[in-house]
Nucleic acid binder design. Structure first.
Lengths: 113, 113
DNA sequence: CTACATACATAAGAAAATTATATATACTCA
DNA sequence: TGAGTATATATAATTTTCTTATGTATGTAG
């Protein structure tokens, strides 16, 4: 079934911010599809997780939005603000450090000599 | 200051189970010190996080305990049950997969050709 | 007319953490 | 003697963040 998330807890924001950094602008549904594609179906983001998270980041000033009608459907695009661009870099550093530490703790990486 | 946790969310159990797998038996405070040591102070587990988590894993049958008095202080040692040993392996596979996916999403790993 | 894909939103509840507090012993430092 | 730190465990209150479920709406495939 692939979709054994459970460890996703603290990294949703980081993932979405990084995708926005790379793609310039994205809408919610597009993000879920992109993540599914990149992880080959392993990680499936749910609407109940992404939309509140996007709203929160918008409220915090990390994202701005603009809405478009495409094929008679509403699309709400999200883009990074300047503050958001700074935040991505911080989050990525944090993630890098965290992954390194996790690999050390779980013995997935040789100890540094 | 190093101690920017925040991404620890879903991995506390995995970390503690892995340490127990490696060390045979450990007590709560010892786990916090070991994690601090291995991560050079980056990750500081709090009591409010570890004790409820250990209690839960004991209730689930993953751990058993025995208490000892050392230097006039109580120590509650935790050990893996057979079920717990199986669980560590599952959690480690999950963690490996998750870390791989996260590195892909965050562009911390070259795309597989 | 049913199901699925696209697209957003939100409410209810659960899970897992943070923060704060409490207990208790022992050592150090002023 | 009193304060602070280290060792050691526990729990309550709160917050954050997620899952699950539901609702709206359009378009296509069968």
């Amino acid at each position: 079934m692939g979709s054994s998330n459970g460890m996703l807890k603290g990294s949703l924001q980081t993932i979405m911010l990084k995708l926005l950094q790379e793609n310039g602008r994205m809408y919610g549904y597009e993000i879920t599809q992109k993540v599914k594609e990149i992880t080959k179906g392993d990680i499936k983001l749910t609407e109940g997780a992404i939309y509140p998270s996007l709203h929160k980041m918008e409220a915090e000033g990390l994202l701005i939005t603009h809405t478009e009608m495409v094929e008679n459907r509403v699309r709400k695009y999200y883009l990074l603000t300047e503050e958001g661009k700074v935040e991505v870099r911080n989050k990525l550093k944090e993630a890098e450090s965290f992954i390194g530490n996790l690999q050390l703790l779980l013995n997935m990486k040789p100890a540094v000599s």
